[in-house]
Design a protein around this nucleic acid. Structure first.
Length: 884
DNA sequence: ATACATACC
DNA sequence: TACTGGTATGTAT
């Protein structure tokens, strides 16, 4: 079993350091010679030593795997084989070849832009970046082995004439905007992967295109001026003044050249009419990109994303490749495809697979049984898909960002003081960025890399979302301080520091962020793949859902929200808007948080009408945002004794304690699914109960939603929230009585706070205002004198106080609405192959698809646009059923 | 919830 | 002299 270890690649080179030549433009290089230079340049460096260490870790992993492999019995293998075959056939049944997915990728993007803007560079080997690191290189340089992610100084050794141009991101961004405009003409929902890359679903475009007149498929060669903004979308058919076949950045040795350039000639008014086929459409798109930016792009056309991506590489640069939409062609294509070509399978995975004798996708298929025994479910399912040439056929809309960070590498930094001030700078930058996107997050992570390249991350999750410099720094500083202390008396010898913030909740607390089931039904796009592929994510979501519930039950109420504005009537929120409301960022919030927010809004709305009675409460509610903070601030002062400067802050753990509403008091917990009291305080017991409830409810009849994405909140409340909140309220009321006198002190209870004194303006990170807020206003929510349920769909008051009955009514309403809506727009895409693997759902984990590709972890939606999968809600699987 | 590793551009 | 920076996700604890 030692075999695979170092021998796999034949060389003694560290696999992680060796040249990675599986890139366009790097075929047939003298790898050995190049690797030798790379090694010589690196050997002995701290970087190298660290790589060595990491390589050994990987080797150990492999060793372990091989040991495991050696212990597998025929029996097990056989059994695994059966299992694998089952999954394979289910996957096979789900194969969807009906979509036309295109992956477009600009050729040597940054380098090409620089070459375009500085013709001097055109015939020279050049790269963009610095002596320390290159972002990309032109094709000329690639012949020397110079490529992206290689440090410039090594590149220089490989190619002494290499010209290194500093990056100019603003420029690339501008170009990126230009090409994205073009992308949008072919798929308004295209998904950018980076500045120069995107996935597009051409299916719809092609439908329309069939009936387009030639004039709409005619495109002119650009006038020699600079790229114009709009260009010729559809209309222009008349010759433009002067047109020339400007030939942008060509790659001298590029294998192919844009055909359209050849026939054009230099006369005035040259244009080209493109056909109606996919290839023509894609060629047209590439043509337009070239005319507009003087840069070339390559594209891949295939029935799914993974394949499209591989295809775009095939005829790069300045080429395209189409993989026919037949199972035959796909299997054939995949047969000899090296696993490393697949996005998501990187150095390490490749090496592990290699150790098992797997290098191509066909091997992958042959070894599935073994793989299923050696890898996680997620992993082997992914391998399985790869081997079958399957992946998502649905291009997820751009998802909201999940984190934001900034990090910096520098010359060794060992003085604590400097480290703190650097940390502060990073926080300033980060806060600025956060502000730009109007975000707030609850988790702050500090990243440190020492001079030996060892990386460490330290995170802390707060109860309240933060966004300002002071808030972020307060946390980061403490994290840093802890690390410094841990190391002392040695100093931390840092070479990099970074700060990240995640666990976003929207900054003005009104946006839900976590769409629930309704998100599944967004109009516009519907995944026709459905079935198994669609299910991949569901189990995962089930888990998440479950998890949110669990978490909720035992933690404090969500942060205080802005109470006014927004709809007065919860149910009435936004209506439709295929793209509308949910586009931007909607950080995440659990269903309960949203429910809570809604509730506050309700109260606020109410308060404005029925003054008094709860006058005080009202004022509390209305001033929460501004006042609660101050209140806490001042209290915190009282509590926090002395202020301190940078390094010496108290570090108060900001762990959420148990049970909601501040108390630890409750003897029983309310199940958010069945609404029953569960007589326990044991989290595990309670969780088990919820699990059970969830799996039961998931077996029940269907439900669904309308196609909007945010009215779901309202729905959630109706469905589960009210009752839950009510009980919750009751619980709180009890607690309130017990605690009302302690509220003040609770506010500053160290447990809830994480303060900072450093600066003059004391910053308070954790505010426990929710508690008071919630408790003090409880007595209303869903009803005062008995529940009044208004159906969020038909808007009619329902004459029942039985939640179950009410929910049933809503279900019916929704089903009708959804059917109506779907029938009206995408009837053709609702037909998804029927794959029912309720097992998967119940298991909560089976087939947790992860479209590999670090980026595309996106799980495809079950049968319709994903946008956001439900997290704060249980049974989405019923939705699946509904749509299958 | 954390920490660390992998991956991608 | 010199081996990035930003984001997401998977795995393990």
């Amino acid at each position: 079993m030692e075999n695979g270890i170092a021998s796999t690649k034949g060389e003694g080179f560290l696999s992680r350091m060796a040249l990675n030549d599986n890139k366009a433009g790097m075929e047939g290089l003298d790898r050995d010679k190049i690797n030798k230079i790379i090694m010589e340049s690196s050997k002995g460096s701290r970087f190298y030593e660290n790589e060595l260490k990491r390589e050994q870790q990987v080797n150990q992993r492999i060793e372990k795997m091989m040991l495991q492999k050696a212990q597998i019995t025929e029996q097990q293998l056989k059994k695994a084989q059966a299992q694998v075959e089952k999954v394979a056939s289910a996957l096979e049944r789900s194969r969807d070849l009906s979509r036309v997915i295109v992956h477009v990728d600009m050729d040597a993007f940054y380098a090409a832009v620089e070459m375009r803007d500085c013709p001097e560079l055109k015939d020279k080997p050049m790269a963009v970046g610095s002596m320390s690191m290159l972002s990309t290189s032109n094709y000329h340089a690639r012949k020397y082995g110079v490529r992206a992610a290689m440090p410039g100084f090594i590149a220089k050794k490989l190619c002494p004439n290499l010209v290194i141009v500093p990056t100019n991101f603003d420029k690339y961004r501008a170009v990126s905007d230009e090409i994205r405009e073009i992308f949008a003409d072919y798929d308004p929902h295209f998904q950018p992967l980076s500045l120069d890359e995107a996935y597009l679903d051409f299916t719809d475009h092609l439908d329309y295109r069939q009936s387009w007149p030639e004039s709409s498929r005619t495109h002119h060669f650009r006038a020699s001026s600079t790229a114009t903004g709009e260009e010729q979308s559809e209309l222009p058919q008349e010759a433009l003044p002067e047109v020339k076949d400007l030939s942008p950045v060509l790659f001298e040795d590029s294998p192919s050249t844009s055909p359209c350039l050849l026939g054009s000639g230099g006369g005035g008014g040259a244009f080209e009419v493109f056909g109606t086929s996919v290839e023509e459409a894609v060629r047209e798109m590439r043509f337009r990109i070239e005319q507009k930016t003087m840069l070339t792009a390559s594209a891949g056309i295939a029935p799914n994303m993974m394949l499209a991506k591989v295809c775009s590489d095939k005829n790069k640069p300045n080429g395209q490749y189409r993989l026919p939409s037949t199972r035959e062609a796909v299997m054939d294509f995949v047969h000899n495809l090296p696993v490393r070509k697949v996005s998501g399978i990187g150095k390490v995975s490749e090496k592990m697979l290699n150790a098992l004798g797997i290098s191509s996708c066909s091997h992958l298929g042959q070894q599935m049984a073994l793989l299923s025994l050696l890898f996680s479910e997620t992993a082997w399912h992914h391998f399985m898909e790869v081997s079958l040439g399957l992946s998502s056929t649905y291009i997820p809309r751009h998802e909201d960002r999940k984190s934001m960070s900034t990090e910096r590498t520098f010359k060794e930094l060992s003085k604590a003081e400097e480290q703190f001030s650097l940390c502060r700078e990073l926080c300033e930058d980060l806060a600025e960025d956060m502000k730009k996107e109007d975000l707030k997050g609850k988790t702050v992570t500090l990243k440190l890399k020492n001079v030996n390249f060892e990386v460490k991350t330290r995170a802390l999750t707060l109860l309240c979302a933060v966004a300002t410099v002071d808030e972020i720094f307060a946390v980061a500083k403490d994290l840093l301080k802890t690390e410094i202390e841990n190391e002392s008396p040695q100093p931390l010898r840092l070479r990099l520091m970074g700060v990240r913030i995640s666990a976003f909740v929207s900054s003005d607390d009104k946006k839900p962020l976590q769409r629930s089931i309704i998100g599944f039904l967004q109009p516009g796009k519907t995944d026709s793949s459905g079935s198994i592929q669609g299910m991949h994510q569901n189990p995962e979501k089930e888990r998440l859902t479950n998890h949110s519930l669990q978490t909720w039950a035992l933690t404090c109420p969500p942060p205080v929200q802005k109470c006014q504005k927004q709809e007065e009537v919860p149910w009435r929120s936004k209506q439709k808007g295929l793209e509308g409301g949910q586009t931007g960022e909607e950080p995440q919030q659990s269903f309960f948080q949203r429910a809570h927010a809604k509730r506050l809004q309700l109260q606020a709305a109410r308060s404005s009408t029925q003054e008094e009675g709860h006058g005080e409460n009202v004022s509390v509610i209305n001033s929460i945002d501004s006042d609660a903070q101050k209140g806490v601030e001042s209290s915190s002062k009282a509590h926090k004794s002395t202020a301190s400067d940078l390094p010496e802050n108290d570090f108060v753990e900001a762990q959420a304690s148990t049970s909601g509403c501040g108390g630890t008091a409750s003897e029983s917990l309310t199940c958010p699914v069945c609404f029953k009291q569960v007589e326990t305080t044991d989290l595990n017991v309670f969780n088990r109960h919820i699990d059970q409830c969830l799996s039961e409810s998931s077996r029940k009849p269907n439900r669904s939603t309308d196609s909007d994405s945010e009215s779901d909140l309202d729905l959630d409340i109706v469905r589960n929230g009210c009752k839950v909140l009510e009980e919750w309220r009751e619980e709180c009321e009890v607690n309130e009585e017990k605690n009302s006198e302690e509220l003040e002190s609770n506010r500053v209870d160290p447990q809830w706070q994480h303060g900072l004194k450093n600066d003059p303006t004391q910053t308070v990170l954790l505010i426990n205002g929710d508690k008071e807020t919630v408790t003090s206003q409880q007595p209303q929510s869903c009803n005062d004198k008995g529940p009044v349920f208004i159906c969020p769909v038909c808007q009619l008051t329902q004459d029942t106080d039985d939640l179950t009955v009410f929910n049933h009514h809503v279900d019916l309403c929704l089903n009708q609405e959804v059917l109506h809506e779907l029938g009206g727009q995408t009837s053709s895409r609702i037909n998804t192959p029927p794959v029912t693997n309720s097992k998967a759902i119940d298991r909560g984990h089976l087939l947790p698809k992860q479209t590999s590709k670090g980026k595309s972890k996106r799980k495809d939606p079950p049968s319709s646009p994903p946008s956001k999968r439900a997290k704060g809600f249980g049974p989405h699987n019923t939705i699946d059923r509904f749509f299958r």
